[in-house]
């Protein structure tokens, strides 16, 4: 009897049941955590500070007391502050990491450390063109190149690792300079880009598999919680390679992938570094978003040398330190040192 009444109710009022079921079982807000979208200065500051605290990879190496940084900068916050003022405080906090892989990005500004400005500039392209490779130099993909030193050396300029290096460009370049005494690969002022390009280049200068550095990534929120180290290996390219001396030119503007290439040369006997210490940037940055929609990134890996030291995050030192003399714009002292090294 009650069953029949129950079914009759459902049949007659099924629209009501549908509505009840929809209301009762479509409320995902009951399953989700609270909405964290907020423009509150304190909430956004705390969120960014905590993310860095748990995931940034170089606090110990750089001797940064992140709790002290929090105290210093959080005191500068106040309710009702403008977005520009909030950005300045949070951006300045990230700058304390002294890392150009640490940036705060809003829709009106981007913060940066500017490691290349911590030392003198050591590169001027016009000196290279006017005094060494002349204006009819060649361009192959991302590379600009020409003979120098009486056709004894091939000079190759790579300003960025951002564009994918195609094998045909390298084939052409290495074939053109195959009879030289050595190559000069100039990566001064190279801010980095795709890491794969580093290995594409290095593969042309090794004849057997070579371990060049190690890497590890943050694996937990504790300061020293890292994954086991993994080795980075360069495999020899199956086509055209170059086995003679290669000198790589670096300066403070050599950053990120440029620093990785510079670090790798330490493991390769036919390659050496001349110029200034690189800017560092060996940690790979992540990417994320704050409660107010701004974005951030900072380093979450460590790159270690073959003796498993992370010290080169401060910069990969040149084997032969040389600076440019800005009083004499007719000569590139770093390039001259490289020519002398090869010849």
């Amino acid at each position: 009897m009650f069953t029949l009444i129950w079914f009759e109710m459902i049949k007659r009022h099924y629209l009501v049941w549908i509505a009840l079921l929809l209301v009762g079982t479509s409320c995902e807000n009951l399953l989700f955590d609270e909405d964290l979208a907020s423009t509150s200065p304190h909430e956004n500051f705390d969120y960014l500070w905590k993310e860095c605290h748990e995931k940034y990879s170089y606090f110990e190496l750089k001797g940064i007391d992140w709790n002290e940084v929090k105290t210093e900068y959080r005191n500068q916050l106040y309710v009702g502050m403008s977005e520009d003022s909030l950005f300045n405080v949070m951006g300045a906090m990230l700058t304390e990491l002294k890392d150009d892989h640490a940036n705060l990005i809003s829709n009106f500004k981007t913060s940066f450390f500017g490691v290349e400005y911590q030392a003198q500039k050591n590169f001027d392209w016009r000196i290279i063109v006017d005094r060494y490779i002349n204006p009819n130099f060649l361009i192959s993909g991302s590379f600009s190149h020409n003979f120098i030193a009486g056709h004894q050396i091939g000079y190759i300029r790579l300003p960025t690792f951002s564009q994918q290096i195609n094998p045909e460009s390298l084939d052409y370049i290495l074939d053109r300079y195959r009879d030289t005494e050595g190559l000069i690969l100039d990566i001064r002022d190279n801010g980095g880009g795709a890491i794969a390009n580093v290995f594409t280049i290095l593969s042309r200068f090794v004849d057997t598999e070579q371990l060049v550095y190690y890497s590890r990534i943050k694996a937990g929120p504790e300061p020293n919680n890292f994954s086991p180290v993994k080795g980075a290996y360069v495999q020899p390219y199956s086509g055209i390679r170059y086995s003679k001396k290669v000198v790589v030119l670096t300066d403070r503007g050599t950053y990120s992938s440029g620093s990785l290439l510079a670090l790798a040369t330490k493991a390769l006997p036919n390659m050496s570094l001349i110029g200034d210490t690189t800017g560092g940037g060996l940690g790979i940055p992540n990417g994320g978003q704050l409660p107010n929609g701004w974005r951030y990134r900072f380093s979450i890996t460590q790159t270690l040398s073959l003796d498993q030291s992370e010290k080169f995050e401060r910069g990969v030192p040149a084997d032969l330190p040389v600076n440019l003399d800005w009083n004499d714009l007719t000569t590139d002292e770093i390039l001259e040192a490289a020519i002398k090294e090869i010849l």
Binding site: I195, F199, S215, I217, S227
Partner: peptide
């Protein structure tokens, strides 16, 4: 972030 990128 993937840890495989730094080691190619």
């Amino acid at each position: 972030t993937s840890s495989s990128a730094p080691i190619n």
